[in-house]
Computed example of a mutant assay.
Amino acid sequence: MAGLVPFNRRTPDILSDPFDDITNVLDDFFADVWPFRRSLVADTFKIDVLEDDKNYYIKAELPGVKKEEVNVTVDEGRIQISVNKEENVEEEGKNYIHRERRQTSMQRNIFLADAKDEGVVAKLENGILTVTVPKKEQTGKAVPIEIEG
């Protein structure tokens, strides 16, 4: 038991060696499951997609993100949720020797074949973005195809 190593135990930081990423690639390659597990280091925000008869409901976990930092677009059933967050705190009277900033840019794309482009509603509340996408009405008409030959 002492020889067991947790999956992707190395995390990138300022002092990390660029060859540490090779260890994560090897961990993914020799994992017991196929396809490979996604690396937790390069992961983006989590989403859930639910549906009922009339709508799709997309829920995205965006803790600490303001609505001004989120962009939601719909184009012919392609829903894109993107986040651009920049942390920059200005403090006067401080004598910094070293100071870092963080800028985060993430996006997720979802294709919903029978989604309408009109009537989409997005709401960000308590770190959860909920996007309600109406469905197109199903005609239910089968079109007969003539067979040649």
Results as ranks from 00 to 15, higher is better:
residue 109 N to T: 15
residue 37 R to H: 03
residue 83 V to A: 07
residue 95 N to T: 15
residue 113 A to D: 07
residue 76 E to A: 14
residue 9 R to M: 12
residue 22 I to C: 03
residue 134 P to F: 05
residue 75 D to A: 15
residue 61 E to R: 06
residue 133 V to D: 01
residue 19 F to K: 13
residue 114 D to S: 01
residue 23 T to M: 09
residue 36 F to P: 05
residue 60 A to Y: 03
residue 42 A to C: 13
residue 58 I to R: 02
residue 63 P to Y: 05
residue 21 D to H: 12
residue 52 D to V: 07
residue 19 F to D: 13
residue 20 D to S: 14
residue 143 V to I: 06
residue 118 E to A: 04
residue 111 F to N: 11
residue 53 D to I: 09
residue 125 E to K: 09
residue 33 V to M: 04
residue 12 P to W: 01
residue 75 D to W: 08
residue 116 K to S: 01
residue 50 L to Q: 05
residue 123 K to H: 12
residue 144 P to D: 10
residue 38 R to M: 07
residue 62 L to S: 00
residue 30 F to K: 02
residue 99 R to I: 14
residue 68 E to Y: 08
residue 81 I to D: 01
residue 59 K to R: 11
residue 134 P to A: 07
residue 32 D to W: 11
residue 113 A to H: 10
residue 116 K to E: 12
residue 49 V to C: 00
residue 53 D to F: 11
residue 127 G to I: 02
residue 47 I to L: 02
residue 52 D to W: 07
residue 92 E to G: 15
residue 42 A to M: 13
residue 123 K to R: 14
residue 76 E to G: 15
residue 20 D to Y: 06
residue 105 S to I: 13
residue 52 D to M: 06
residue 26 L to K: 09
residue 11 T to P: 01
residue 62 L to V: 01
residue 79 I to K: 08
residue 113 A to P: 10
residue 66 K to H: 13
residue 72 V to Q: 04
residue 80 Q to G: 13
residue 22 I to A: 04
residue 95 N to W: 09
residue 77 G to H: 08
residue 97 I to A: 15
residue 119 G to E: 03
residue 11 T to R: 08
residue 50 L to S: 04
residue 28 D to R: 14
residue 46 K to H: 10
residue 100 E to G: 09
